[in-house]
Design a binder for these strands. Structure first.
Length: 305
DNA sequence: AGCGGTCAAGTTGAT
DNA sequence: ATCAACTTGACCGCT
């Protein structure tokens, strides 16, 4: 019997549960009133949809759900940004948030965020850091509404000097409000920052490391998966979050960084099975991939007993 | 209804 | 120089 809580990422493959969005360009053609009405409609739709997503997880034994960053479309856009309170559907939106937060809490469903690639806390460009901080504060507001406990980002760029880049990352992290900083986690990536690059930072700054084993295999650092698992766990003051995926064309195919539809159990670290951790499944078949992993681990368990 | 170009934002590395 | 990739394709105007 595994202790793992599996996490579904953002969207569904087969289930008719669809989040909506819009573009700044599309809103440019509308009067302020119309664009505001449209945004309000999209927010309401998406919060309802989030309720459906969490309900699906509850009914299917999925213990964690990663929420799309675009839940409230263009919320921080310089021209089209808005406060939820100002939307026509504000009351219903807040009420739905309250309901789904209580539901997720009652059913022990963990929710997380993974802000997109434009959040770069260690950029040498001040305007990039400013908008990143703003974006993270926005995520923390959503996290409070939903009851999410993790906002996970990558370390950012290297800019030819990893040491000073990590120093800037620390400055960025410490510029966050405490209510935002307490949700923040850092994930190893597949090009620049391996776990061994990030662990000293994580220990020093008390920021948990989200260990992505696929990225670690793409960008190895001399430490084994078992060792890294243990060190990553030591950075957490609560249930750790890890990531797993399989390469689209196998490890010998081209561009193994890209994700497969499903998880090959050979890529699933055996050591993880007994741990009380959240494993977010990054696979294109989404809920189908999770169902398959859960089944395979269950049959694995009964076979070895 | 279906198709293709487009979409706020950063950084890296393959081609 | 261009572009795909990244946690995720969806939207919109055109035919």
């Amino acid at each position: 019997m595994t202790m793992i809580r599996f996490g579904l990422c953002c969207v569904f493959h087969d289930e008719p549960i669809k989040f909506r969005t819009t573009t700044a360009a599309a809103l440019h053609g509308l009067a302020r009133k119309q664009s505001f009405a449209k945004l309000s409609e999209l927010c309401l739709h998406n919060v309802r949809t989030l309720g459906l997503a969490i309900d699906y997880c509850n009914r299917n034994g999925i213990g964690s759900f990663r929420v799309q960053s675009g839940l409230l479309p263009l919320r921080t856009h310089p021209r089209h940004g808005y406060n939820i309170e100002d939307l026509a559907n504000a009351d219903e939106i807040f009420s739905l948030f309250g309901g789904l937060r209580a539901f997720a809490h009652r059913r022990n469903i963990r929710t997380t965020f993974h802000p997109d690639q434009f959040v770069v806390l260690n950029s040498p460009r001040p305007e990039v850091v400013v908008s990143s901080l703003r974006e993270l504060e926005h995520h923390a507001e959503m996290a409070e509404l939903i009851g999410a406990d993790v906002i996970n980002i990558h370390a950012g760029g290297v800019y030819g000097d990893k040491e000073s880049a990590l120093k800037r990352l620390a400055e960025g992290v410490n510029s966050l409000s405490s209510r935002t900083r307490k949700h923040l986690t850092i994930e190893n990536d597949d090009r620049s920052y391996s776990p061994v690059d990030l662990l000293p930072f994580c220990w020093q700054e008390q920021i948990p490391l989200v260990y992505d084993v696929h990225h670690h295999r793409c960008l190895p650092d001399g430490f084994s998966i078992e060792e890294t698992t243990e060190m990553a766990c030591s950075t957490w003051n609560r249930e750790p979050v890890f990531h797993v995926s399989s390469p689209i064309h196998g490890w010998t195919g081209k561009n193994p960084r890209r994700h497969h539809d499903y998880i090959d159990m050979n890529d699933f670290p055996e050591k993880w099975i007994k741990l009380g951790i959240t494993v977010e499944v990054e696979a294109k078949a989404k809920e189908l991939a999770i169902r398959r992993v859960m089944n395979e681990i269950m049959s694995l368990g009964s076979a070895t007993i």
